[in-house]
């Protein structure tokens, strides 16, 4: 048991949550961080789906890593990810149809998410299945955290709601407050991601 949670393994899990965050530090997965963060709910669903898929594709590639021919490794990784995503989406469609309707747009986006390819190439190709699994979960959650922050800001100021419930009291609207339409636009999420990266780097600099 102690071996399962050695310092190295713990680091594989916790690093991507903060000091090596996939979005804030590695600047991966920005595209989907812009596309699905105008409200909190899709941001969370997307974050969780990426976490699950990253973890399992990491494990599969890690198991295969010694057999994969070097020259076609990217293709092999891509095939594994695409096959996994397709099978998962088929299973969802058959057994939890409502969830699959919710996820419809994201499934395609998951295949193209650079975090997956990045982690497969940088981590799973060199490490065993268990650390790879932790690394996948850690990176997925690190990505989800940024998505939730951006989604929170955009939904709060863009729509005046959180999870679809009104949170801005009516008297503020009566006093002349209006929702910021800019927040709804994808451009604004790039600015928010920029601010998050800024805050994150400023904070980590102090720590060092």
């Amino acid at each position: 048991m102690s071996k399962l949670f050695s310092d190295e393994n713990k680091a594989a899990f916790t690093n991507p949550l903060n000091v090596n965050n996939p979005v804030a530090v590695q600047v991966l997965g920005i595209c989907s961080a812009l596309a699905v963060t105008s409200q909190l709910k899709p941001a969370i669903v997307m974050g969780l789906s990426v976490t699950v898929i990253t973890a399992f594709s990491n494990v599969i590639i890690s198991l295969l890593r010694k057999t994969i021919p070097n020259r076609i490794r990217i293709i092999v990784q891509l095939v594994v990810v695409a096959a996994l995503v397709t099978i998962v989406s088929q299973l969802l469609k058959a057994y939890v149809y409502d969830v699959s309707v919710q996820l419809s747009v994201y499934v395609g986006l998951i295949i193209t998410n650079c975090i997956l390819m990045g982690r497969l190439e940088a981590f799973a190709m060199q490490n065993g299945p268990w650390p790879s699994f932790l690394d996948g979960i850690g990176n997925g959650l690190g990505y989800a955290a940024i998505l939730v922050i951006v989604g929170f800001v955009r939904e709060l100021f863009g729509f005046g709601t959180l999870f679809g419930y009104n949170v801005i009291p009516q008297f503020l609207y009566d006093a002349g407050y209006t929702n910021n339409g800019m927040m709804v636009m994808p451009a604004m999420s790039l600015i928010i991601v920029g601010c998050v990266i800024w805050a994150h780097r400023a904070y980590n600099k102090e720590e060092k």
Binding site: K66, T67, I68, P69, N70, R71, I72, I75, V76, V79
Partner: peptide, 16 residues
């Protein structure tokens, strides 16, 4: 195994 050989690469891709 020589995982860099052409034959191996082709077979691997085909089987996969």
């Amino acid at each position: 195994l020589n995982t860099n050989g052409n034959v191996y690469t082709f077979c691997y891709a085909a089987v996969m």
